[in-house]
Design a protein around this nucleic acid. Structure first.
Lengths: 247, 247
DNA sequence: CGTGCACTTGACAAAAATCAAATTTTGTGG
DNA sequence: CCACAAAATTTGATTTTTGTCAAGTGCACG
């Protein structure tokens, strides 16, 4: 399950954009922030762990002993409300990190949405490393700013009143993240199920289903299968994404 | 409007909790993270600026030339949607910072909710300072983690379906922030108007008004005046805050 | 080739949005 | 300090939308 000094020649990776430097690539394109040397040093204290789809990696409230950095796969950060309902705070992809917390306790639970491979960095080893390396810390700051922005955009989505508008914004997020990872964007790939989507956009499962149907009926998207969506009418799509109101 | 080497003996302050250290005060209590020396060094590159209530401090999309640190007053971070509607991403209080951005551009607009005094730190001077000082960066990381958590809790609120439940969560946030600033909590003080609240919780203005009324009628809160709310029935209050559903 | 889970669809009720009007509060100039 | 105008807030009536509950449908996996 774990191996020190992984044979992988790279080591932990943080994909993000710089807080201040005007884009050195395409706008919105996320680049590897860490230098090879930083990655190699982090690899020294990291082990590689794997999780099966559906596995809970940690739960909110547990002591935060490790920080994780995703190599492959997708996880969801969620909080359980009463009555069995969950709220998904975000989906995390390769190059993302999770496990930074509050007063030594995790604030979200994390579950693997797909099979996941990740670096695990013990806080006890990471913390002194961080305090020695201002460059590394700067990159962590960039990554946190990005996550903060993403969380705020999520809030923007959640404040929408129209189901279609929420769903379109969600698809837009997924498309942008896909583009930021330099993956092809002719189709949007959705690694999570409809139930996860409903918990992320804050609507009931039937409402998500109906919103997909409505967008399809209006010729705005095409759903090849549950996980593959294509935007057919880009103009109407962007209009719905931009407007709180559905004209 | 600006003064170098302010007579204020302190300098910029970051209130937050440590990411990893188990609370060294009361849980949730935010402490000054920066050392006197750090604050003094930051004061060297800071100027003090004042804004009138309602003043726009910057707009989304502008070049992010400055980072701000609030001394007194309250600001709101917001994004404008079409049709004149705004969404408020968060309220910021003394000890909070704003202006960290993406690729050199601000991602939110900022407006003063009350008269505001703040330190202004030019990015051109702050950036080299940051890269020299790992301790300062660590504190910025702690502050960003706190903001990220707050944004996620905001998302949690926005995902609620019951107006009363949203409003109760909002009041809970304000109460907790008040407590974290070590202010008395016998009453919750609301510096923003009803319209700001409606834009933060993602409901219409009449819905906010009716939710206040409903909570008052049920004896859960008492509204002394627009800005002062007292929680009368703590148990019912916490129940509403915890449950998506209003029993 | 069935069984279960994920998803869709239908009917209805509940909740809040909207539009509009009334009322209270606040700020300003005399 | 008061009167007035403007702004903020509350209230009312109606409509829209989505949540809820329940019953299908179909795909995936053993």
């Amino acid at each position: 399950m774990a191996a020190r000094h992984p044979s992988n020649p790279h080591g932990p990776a943080l994909r993000a954009v710089d807080v201040w430097s005007p884009a050195n690539g395409l706008p919105g394109k996320m680049n590897q922030m860490l230098t090879d040397e930083e990655r190699a040093r982090l690899a020294m204290i990291a082990s590689i762990v794997r999780f099966k789809k559906g596995a809970v990696i940690y739960r909110e409230g547990e002591p935060s002993d490790n920080v994780f950095n995703i190599i492959s796969g997708v996880v969801k950060a969620y909080r359980s409300a009463r009555y069995g309902r969950e709220h998904i705070a975000g989906f995390l992809f390769p190059g993302d990190m999770f496990g930074l917390s509050e007063e030594g306790k995790y604030t979200n639970s994390i579950k693997a949405v797909t099979p996941v491979t990740a670096y695990r960095l013990p806080v006890s080893l990471l913390r002194p490393r961080l305090s020695q390396d201002a460059g590394l810390e700067y990159h962590v700051i960039c990554k946190l700013c990005q996550e903060l922005r993403q969380a705020q955009r999520h809030g923007f989505l959640l404040a929408r009143r129209q189901a279609r508008s929420k769903l379109v914004m969600f698809l837009q997020f997924m498309e942008q993240l896909q583009a930021a990872r330099s993956e092809p964007t002719s189709e949007i790939y959705l690694p999570m199920d409809r139930s996860d989507i409903s918990e992320y956009v804050g609507m009931s499962l039937p409402a998500v289903s109906r919103a997909f149907l409505s967008l399809t009926t209006d010729g705005i998207i095409r759903v090849r299968d549950r996980r593959h969506v294509k935007i057919v009418d880009r103009q109407a799509f962007e209009r719905l994404a931009a407007n709180p109101k559905n004209p």
